[in-house]
Design a protein around this nucleic acid. Structure first.
Lengths: 146, 146
DNA sequence: ATACTTATTGCAAATAATTTGCATTTGCAT
DNA sequence: ATGCAAATGCAAATTATTTGCAATAAGTAT
């Protein structure tokens, strides 16, 4: 968990003005264990009693992603764009096909692969995105998985 | 490239009626080297002089994906859902961040990883999705990459 | 071939997600 | 404090996708 002032600094460092809405959105993303859609961020703000417009949320999330403070995510089966806090650490997702819960995987099985792919395809590789799909233990127990 | 009759058979085997629109959509997906959005499939049909309604395209793509004749794709940066023909072979994508071209990668660097992840997380793993992002040789030359 | 049943399609309208223009407000450097 | 650019609110526009229902076409049995 980060301190509030850290969010301010993060914004400043990116050349963004520090506004209460932006800092609040960044904090919501950081505190969430799940990537969130604009609408979800919006209602969390409402719950906290912070008046904000949905367009502002969209615009803010977009700019946070642009500045690399957040990561934009499009997962199969979700028709909305999700955003997560950028921990600045390479990570992947394990998504439950039943309950849609997203688990973060911190170690990456692809070290070295990018280099060999670059050689093979002549592309310059910028990064990759790996999502694994399956059924979480809870949903498995309910007999819906498999 | 598949024969037209093969598309008919594929549909029948899935318990779907063989209609000219469905077979045409399946053929368009199969012929395309890129995953396509509903809108794109729609205009290809128009160009071919086949009258069709956009809702039909959406419905058809959805049902094709459900029957595993097509694969549904949500890639970062594309706000529309894309569909590609299901070659029934495991594959990944290499996406150019500049021109958005999608290259299919047929060998998978993740053999074995799913098993170890299953053990580690207690999930049952159904599959995974790996997208690699980078710049294609052409865009690199234009000096926009890197 | 004809008739029948049901899935498929068209159409128009609804919904959901996201974006935009513009007037107002706020952050921040001076 | 003052001023300017960036950020926000608001309403309206776009874009993507879905849905209800009537018309049509596919597959099956006759």
């Amino acid at each position: 968990m980060k301190e509030k002032k850290e969010f301010r600094d993060d914004l400043k460092l990116c050349g963004l003005k520090n506004t209460k809405r932006r800092a609040a959105i960044l904090e919501i993303l950081e505190k969430s264990d799940q990537p969130l859609a604009a609408e979800q961020v919006f209602s969390e703000l409402q719950n906290k009693g912070m008046p904000i417009n949905l367009s502002t949320v969209y615009r803010t999330l977009e700019i946070l992603a642009e500045k690399n403070l957040a990561i934009k995510l499009n997962i199969t089966g979700e028709n909305r764009t999700l955003f997560e806090y950028n921990e600045q650490v390479h990570r992947h997702h394990l998504i439950c096909l039943e309950c849609k819960k997203i688990l973060t995987i911190k170690n990456c099985p692809l070290n070295g692969y990018e280099k060999s792919l670059a050689k093979e395809t002549n592309y310059s590789i910028a990064g990759h995105k790996l999502d694994v799909y399956g059924y979480c233990p809870e949903c498995n127990q309910k007999g819906k998985g498999q």
